[in-house]
Design a protein around this nucleic acid. Structure first.
Length: 673
DNA sequence: GTAGGGTTAG
């Protein structure tokens, strides 16, 4: 019984703190009974410091295990803390031996948790402060336990507070001792804090410690080595140094992490680590991720190859899906998008073909969505179809019971957006079908991005029904939002923009376009929500929609709407006319006003204003020169009025003039943001 | 130790 528990405890004393401590359900090792006996001795006034120490040691042997006591989870640190306080009360602070205090410090260190909910490190720190007041000088061991507690408690990671505390203690310990074993152990713990800390400079701090360990390792005495000092510098130590660099955002992080990885492999191959200490998956995956962030897929793949070679020599090292995904993601981020697509397709195929032999490399949702992104960023013709095929592949796997490839509405949205960006003839039909299947699905409900992207597909469609469908979808989204109160479904300015764009492109009603703009403005006034703030696009699309009015009977109303919208833009404090505004407004003048004085006046006034604002673009110039009387064009372009140029010369001038030929000031703001 | 959706016009 005790033997089995001892083994389990050893396992929990290991450095792997990722595993949550287990909760014991019985008094498996009799520590509770020891406590009962101690309490009995206290009752009869027969408890000595030695009896307390026996009970403390009984709990300390439980390591990180936890158990229930009065409906609360408790652990060795809590129990030993209570026992120490009782003992101090019975005797006096100075009558309790330092060795007994140290048992409590050790318990704090052992029970310290990564997230530090119980704050044992700080409790260790305050106990050591009390000890300093009672005793003249404390042994290094006391400080070592506190350092150990800070090393394993990783709360305040961002601020690096635990790391700083550990460093202060390390400095103190370095001053007090030259014992190789102690120093190696303390360096190793401090290195562990830096590897987990995201604070600035953590990688170089980790590097300093690794270097110190390597130097000290060379100078250790035979005595130290017999006590296991050189065994502390092992694969775990290297892993910590690697991860410190790997997560570092500076561009050299990947290079440094990679160098240390190679050094670790070299040492491992030479048999320099303790038996059973071997390079870990997490070190390799960390380096691959670091290369990926630099877009260095070639290097990430080299690391994967290295890992594949090394696994034969290791008992536990084998690449997993994250390893492959990291390389895949690195290709996604690499510069050559065509190579990326080829490589990623190959790697995914390899995973699919080999996971029966290597279950850890079974492709998951991450794998497929990265493949999908690779298709989307490629220049291939059938991007939308291929990304849809990838999504359907996931859907089939999911339907057959594979829970690791759950499709998400984001992926559906990515496919729909691929259709919106492509030039597939029936993009709109496909997009609407995808929307319908999302509505049927329990997993991937459409949201406002879905609706907006489907409407964007409709805006590119030549189907005369598109505008009607777009309006239907907008009100459907509104209805679903009102039913569910789900904010991700609420239409926003962009959704409105896409509906108006659809109207503009399908010669739809300017009245409707205007109504939508007014509706959005009212919503924005009510809520002041930045997502509903109309921008230049909204107004410009309304102008373009009006300009595209074909039916003669509707042109007057369309012009009124355009004029109103243009005037509003000039006075608005939300938007300012831009070069598109003037181009669309001139288009309105040309298309909606019959030739004559009124049109001439409008064009003249608009162009002069546009020139003053420095917004004369190629399109503005085109709208001016095409469809307006040559005399007016010449006047507005400042063609020398009294020159004796012939009409053909003038006409040629008007045909070839470019924005660049005009005074710079006329177009100084065309590209302003 | 691996991410991710709409950024629009003429």
């Amino acid at each position: 019984m005790t033997r089995v528990l001892k083994l389990n405890i050893d396992e929990h004393l290991s450095r792997d703190r990722a595993v949550r401590p287990k909760i014991l359900d019985t008094d498996i090792d009799g520590a509770e009974r020891v406590l009962t006996m101690l309490n009995h001795l206290i009752d009869i006034n027969a408890a000595t410091e030695e009896s307390f120490r026996i009970a403390m040691n009984a709990f300390l042997r439980r390591g990180r295990f936890r158990w229930m006591r009065h409906q609360h989870v408790t652990c060795a640190a809590d129990q030993i803390e209570d026992l120490l306080e009782t003992l101090i009360e019975l005797k006096s602070p100075s009558d309790v031996s330092i060795a007994t205090y140290n048992l409590a410090l050790e318990a704090y260190a052992v029970c310290s948790t990564p997230r530090g909910e119980r704050d044992y490190a700080r409790r260790a720190e305050s106990l050591v402060k009390r000890m300093e007041q009672v005793f003249e000088v404390l042994p290094v061991e006391s400080y070592k336990h506190v350092l150990h507690a800070f090393a394993w408690q990783q709360a305040n990671l961002e601020e690096g507070e635990c790391a700083r505390k550990a460093c202060e203690l390390l400095k103190l310990i370095e001053q007090r001792t030259e014992d190789g074993l102690t120093l190696m152990q303390c360096y190793d713990w401090t290195l562990e804090v830096w590897s987990k800390s995201g604070s600035a400079g953590s990688a170089s701090e980790a590097q300093v410690l690794l270097d110190k360990m390597k130097t000290l390792n060379l100078t250790l005495s035979t005595n130290d080595i017999e006590n296991g000092a050189h065994l502390i510098l092992d694969a775990d130590t290297y892993c910590n140094a690697i991860l410190a660099w790997a997560k570092n955002s500076v561009s050299t992080g990947a290079v440094r992490a990679n160098d240390i990885l190679l050094e670790m492999v070299d040492r491992f191959n030479k048999g320099e680590f303790a038996p059973g200490s071997e390079p870990s998956l997490i070190a390799f995956n960390g380096v691959m991720a670091a290369w990926g962030r630099q877009g260095r897929a070639d290097m990430a793949e080299n690391v994967l190859k290295l890992m594949d070679e090394l696994r034969l020599k290791c008992t536990n090292l084998t690449p997993d899906a994250i390893s492959y995904n990291s390389v895949i993601h690195a290709y996604l981020r690499s510069a050559d998008k065509e190579l990326a697509l080829q490589k990623v397709s190959e790697l995914v195929k390899f995973m699919e073909d080999n996971y029966h032999k290597q279950p850890a490399i079974k492709p998951n949702g991450f794998t497929y969505s990265t493949l999908m992104k690779c298709w989307i960023q490629s220049d291939r013709e059938d991007v939308a179809e291929q990304s849809e095929a990838t999504l359907m592949r996931m859907q089939r796997l999911w339907d057959s019971g594979d829970i690791s490839v759950q499709p998400t509405n984001r992926m559906f949205n990515m496919v729909i957006n691929a259709y919106a960006k492509g030039n597939s003839r029936d993009a709109a039909r496909k997009a609407v079908l995808l929307l319908e299947s999302m509505k049927q699905s329990e997993l991937c409900q459409p949201d406002v991005v879905t609706y907006t992207s489907v409407i964007e597909c409709l805006s590119k469609s030549t189907d005369p029904q598109s505008a009607e469908k777009a309006e239907e979808l907008l009100s459907e989204a509104f209805q679903r939002y009102q039913e569910t109160k789900d904010n991700t479904l609420r239409p926003n300015a962009r959704t409105f923009a896409m509906v108006i764009l659809t109207l503009a492109r399908t010669n739809g009603s300017a009245v409707k376009a205007r109504e939508l703009l007014v509706q959005l403005l009212e919503l924005y006034k009510e809520t002041n929500d930045p997502d509903l703030r109309p921008n230049e696009y909204l107004y410009n699309y309304v102008l373009n929609c009006a300009a595209n009015t074909i039916e003669a009977s509707k042109k007057i109303v369309a012009f009124q709407i355009a004029a109103m919208t243009y005037q509003e833009m000039r006075k608005s404090n939300l938007v300012r006319p831009d070069s598109f505004t003037y181009a669309f407004w001139l288009k309105c003048c040309n298309n909606l006003i019959p030739p004559g004085d009124l049109r001439k006046k409008c064009v003249e006034y608009a162009f002069e204003e546009c020139r003053k604002e420095g917004l004369v673009s190629k399109e503005v110039l085109l709208r001016l020169t095409q469809g307006n009387p040559p005399k007016l064009v010449d006047k507005l372009l400042d063609f020398p009025q009294n020159s004796k140029a012939s009409d053909t010369k003038r006409s040629a001038y008007r045909r070839v003039i470019k924005v660049q030929d005009l005074p710079r000031a006329w177009s100084r703001n065309v590209y302003r943001k």
